[in-house]
Amino acid sequence: MEPLEIVNRLKTKYLNEIADVTEFRDQVFVSVNRDRISDICRFLHDDPDIYMDYLVDLCGVDYPDRQHRFEVVYNLYSVKHKHRLMLKALIPADNPSVDSVVPIWAGANWHEREACDMYGIVFNGHPDLRRILMPDDWEGYPLRKDYPLKGPADSEYKGFEELKDLHSHDSEWNIQ
């Protein structure tokens, strides 16, 4: 099915949710409101003609100047029908949260954790939302546009808190 056909199907069902449709070099991006994202994903996954069974990728994007600061991009592909659709959930800055799609695609688990780690987007209903690439006690969200590439010299990461505790209590580990 052509991507635009899928968009038309989506429009007949969720017209009020769709904010924008853009096309660039044959790839179609559909921006939707975040509120019913899990319904929309469930529809795209379950509909036998669309059948987006493969979540290729899920990532966040930060646009500090826009009304909806964050976007979560769902890269959907159907192995059966060989078609692709890019879905974008628009997320405001004051409450960066969106429903998790882990119940639909198990592979979304780590992608969502990474988006949370890098952008601070909270995925409601995620089974295990912890930082993944950065240490647990890291402050800030590195891929946000207002996060500097290199901070001042005194802002260097001091190391794991738990390791420091270990060092001070256990003489065997007390390496100077």
Binding site: N75, G107, W110
Partner: peptide, 26 residues
């Protein structure tokens, strides 16, 4: 996979790397 957001400057506005190993470890 590479997901690019280009804003017309010489640098990518966003470059996402979809790496197979990340998915496989998950």
């Amino acid at each position: 996979g590479f997901f690019f957001v280009s804003d017309g400057t010489g640098k990518p506005y966003r470059m996402r790397v979809r790496s197979p190993s990340f998915v496989h470890v998950a």
